[in-house]
Design a protein around this nucleic acid. Structure first.
Lengths: 135, 135
DNA sequence: CTTGACCTTCCCGCCATGGGAACCCCCATC
DNA sequence: GATGGGGGTTCCCATGGCGGGAAGGTCAAG
């Protein structure tokens, strides 16, 4: 049994977040006589699981479902796969959206002199003049 | 002079957000005798500017600087361009991070049967078994 | 004069995380 | 046995960018 600090060091999850995960019901450590949270190896494994899932960008609500599936020996891998692929789609949609922003902004910036003069197609676009160079 | 609802309709920014932008000092509408906010065309132009900048993913603090540059007739386009290109870099970094997550998760999912059986490399990875198929 | 559509301010929620205050606990050292 | 420091505990606040909603004021049309 370890303290929260030890569990944090062992799992790579900050003590702050470990308490948070407990508050939202992802983990339920025991309590020592002095009131300190007491973590077993299995708890640390859960924390590592959570961290890995977070590293892949899963929202905590999905992490909760993944944890449930992980613990369920009768799970179907199809269900896990569905959660994963849904998340892949969400990630790719978000990435595509960001790349689209980057591309149009980069395009605008390419047409900006970038010198001491005030003329700037970027500001023109933001103002809503619907871009000069499109004409 | 228009009310906040009219300004919202004209600018495409919700009344809620218009008040928020005012609270953080991006816009300063006048007040009518009855206490209602009163927006001129110039205010609506500011709101549209904000919306366009937000559509390109600029954080509000950067929008604030862009607005200042927009209003400054002696601005240098170089400064605008720098803000823009910094933001492009941030967007691309974020997009790359998301795509990396999507790619590794997709890879894991490809090796998941996705049937009624419980075996699942996705869960194995999350557990931290460091992926079987890498061997 | 009521109704309803608008306006006002203020508070709370999301998501995931960090910072910090105020207090308790335990161990080592003097 | 006192003290100090490095834990732990709870609780509140902040981030960013928005939404929901309550409680109340205002105005125009019926």
């Amino acid at each position: 049994m370890m303290t929260i600090g030890e569990a944090a060091a062992a799992s790579g999850v900050s003590a702050k977040m470990i308490r948070h995960y407990e508050a939202i019901g992802l983990i339920r450590p025991q309590r020592a006589a002095n009131g300190y949270r007491a973590y077993a190896e299995a708890d640390v494994a859960v924390l590592r699981f959570i961290r890995h899932a977070r590293d892949l960008g899963f929202p905590l609500e999905t992490v909760r479902r993944l944890l449930a599936l992980w613990r369920d020996r009768n799970r179907s891998s199809a269900e896990v796969k569905r959660l994963a692929l849904d998340h892949v789609a969400a990630l790719e949609a978000k990435a595509a959206s960001l790349r689209a922003m980057a591309a149009s902004l980069r395009h605008l910036a390419e047409h900006c002199h970038g010198d001491e003069r005030p003329d700037c197609p970027i500001l023109d676009e933001l103002e809503g003049l619907e871009r000069v160079e499109r004409a």
